[in-house]
């Protein structure tokens, strides 16, 4: 247990406390968007259902940014700089490292839920029961798994420059077409069916339904599960390919 706690302390410092990118892009930016679109750029009072739905959207957006920019880059960086190799050669291996990164990525999402939830309560006076908040947190954490797997999948790319381009190409189009930034009805009609296939669309709808007491649609749960299945297979195949290619092994 002691090694795992030490690993958590180590990763907590670098992934959260001293990680300005996370603090800015995954917390401050979604919080700023939330205030902008529910308080600043609106006239009159925003309906509570919109405040809740947009809170859900920004929680999903924060998780997406965190997974595709933050976690993907950290995994690539750790592999490129030899940290992963160092773990591989120690008696405990890579398990504590992966468990710790997985734990902190969930905590990162948890922080986003707390910050955006508090904003929704304080600024827009939304009110949810404890059970609903717990359900929001649970769905948000499960819903982060597809984007987290996407982050892991693209972390296997060879160069940080390529990773940056790919992250941008996935995150922002996916956020826009799946209705995280503004309602899907504002998108061209040909784009809407594509948006409805995105993992963030399924998670956003699922989370929104939990937050606004709407009826839960099984299609959202099936959609998230299908994405988890597909991405899990992709990550497994990539890992096998990586081991076969011999990347990450010692260079002399």
């Amino acid at each position: 247990m002691k090694p795992f706690l030490a690993q958590l302390k180590f990763d907590g410092r670098r992934l959260i406390l001293r990680n300005f990118s996370f603090q800015f892009f995954s917390i401050l930016m979604p919080a700023g968007f939330y205030l902008l679109f529910t308080k600043v750029m609106v006239s009159g009072t925003v309906p509570v259902s919109f405040s809740l739905q947009y809170m859900a959207s920004m929680i999903v957006y924060s998780g997406t940014i965190n997974a595709l920019f933050g976690i993907a880059l950290i995994l690539m960086h750790d592999r490129e700089k030899g940290l992963l190799q160092w773990y591989q050669l120690t008696p405990l291996g890579v398990q504590p490292y992966y468990l710790s990164v997985g734990f902190w990525s969930m905590v990162m999402n948890g922080i986003a839920i707390v910050v955006l939830g508090m904003l929704a309560v304080v600024v827009n006076h939304v009110s949810l029961t404890l059970g609903q908040w717990l359900a929001v947190a649970g769905v948000a954490l499960i819903g982060q798994i597809p984007t987290l797997l996407m982050g892991v999948a693209i972390s296997f790319l060879n160069r940080p420059e390529t990773l940056s381009i790919v992250s941008n190409l996935i995150t922002f189009p996916m956020a826009i077409v799946s209705g995280l930034w503004w309602p899907m009805s504002m998108l061209p009609s040909w784009l809407q069916p594509i948006g409805k296939l995105m993992p963030t669309y399924f998670v956003n709808n699922w989370l929104g339904a939990v937050a606004t007491h709407a009826t839960l649609k099984t299609t959202n749960i099936i959609g998230v599960s299908a994405w988890i299945g597909v991405l899990l297979v992709l990550v497994i195949l990539e890992t096998r390919q990586l081991l076969k290619r011999g990347d990450g092994v010692v260079k002399a």
Binding site: K2, P3, A6, Q7, K9, F10, R13, R14, L15, L17, R18, N19, H77, D78, K81, G82, L83, Q85, W86, Y87, L89, T90, P91, L92, P96, V250, K251, A252
Partner: peptide, 24 residues
């Protein structure tokens, strides 16, 4: 092992790296 990579890990000090490493 002292291999060719030098672990310039962001957000971590020398003592923090060695303290974590010792627990392994």
């Amino acid at each position: 092992s002292m291999l060719q990579g030098d672990l310039p890990i962001r957000g971590i000090t020398v003592v923090e790296l060695l303290t974590m490493a010792a627990t392994h």
